[in-house]
Amino acid sequence: MGEVTLTIDNKEVKAEEGMTVLEAARSAGIKIPTLCHHEKLEPYTACRICMVEVESRGRSELDTSCSRPVKDNMVVRTQSEELTEIRRTLLELMLSHAPDARELQELVEEYGANRNRFAKEPSFCIHCGLCVRYCAEVKKKNAVVFVKSGVRREISFNKEIASRECWKCRECFELCPTEALQTAYLLTEALTSDSSSFELEPDA
């Protein structure tokens, strides 16, 4: 793997080929907000909050830093008025689901987001997919998946798998940026909806 040099926020940054812009920035102590990103998981590019401005080979565009591979001589800007507007609006869209989510609060302050910009849709879930992907990619269990599509998309526990696997794991709970409310709620619901088919393991 070769080394590349790029510029992030006017700072020269050395990075390994194959790294993402986000990784390069973080290695240089430059902060880019993320919500659906997790080091152990494949880039997902769903929350879009990590978007940055990338200039490469004479072309400037917006892209998600969690997925964008670094290139030699790339110029990245992580802050601009445009990016602030994007991040603020994305936050406001997410706040319509989870107005009190702890992980959103710091960003709300930073970007001056208005909690009441949009109509409330209190599902508590911001569809970051951390629980879903962690369960599939790290735990390889697929106990929780997204079902349906479009605005109806939601997470769902499969009760056979969940009854076997979840009580002893529950690692996804702490990943949830909305403090596991939805995760725990849905898990409980899935486990109790047809309790005759299996026995719950006692909570150790």
Binding site: L93, M94, S149, V151, R153
Partner: peptide, 22 residues
């Protein structure tokens, strides 16, 4: 139409459409 036909993965599409529709 798009509210149902979007895959629902990314926030600006899924929640943007939801709010525009609202």
């Amino acid at each position: 139409f798009l509210a149902h036909e979007s895959c629902g993965k990314c926030t600006p599409c899924r929640d943007g459409i939801r709010q525009m529709l609202h």
